[in-house]
Amino acid sequence: MNPNYKFIDHTADIAVEVQGRTIEELFLNSADAWRTVALEKNDLIDNVGITLYLECETLEQLLVSFLNELNFLLINKKWLTVSISKIEIIQKDRVTLSVVLLGHPISDLHSLKAEIKSVTYHQMSIEKKADNYFTRIVFDI
């Protein structure tokens, strides 16, 4: 398992603490945690790319939107994100994310481990401590 995130006990849902040396790395590690929650096993086929662009008011909203987008693609578009490249986050008046999601279409959802209803804002706060960025994410299951 990726050492940059750690699952913690949450009574009803699934909570994880994630870290990254940069904001981009924090987002990538969060996506990795999402995959661990949602998928039975890792997939290696990442020969199709989808470009994603998101714009939000805050970094927390951007992270929630990003992970919910991965979830929507998986459950509703049956498109599995296996890896992520060319991630860029720009923070100005608003924050933007552009990213290429690499993966492939899937025929059914049988290999899914859990239905994530949504990524929540509960206890989410992206903070920099020493050299790393940290956040907690609670997935509503």
Binding site: H10, T11, A12, D13, T120, Y121, V138
Partner: peptide
């Protein structure tokens, strides 16, 4: 009652 998000469940 148990831990939810926002409100307790």
């Amino acid at each position: 009652i148990h831990w939810g998000y926002g409100f307790p469940i």
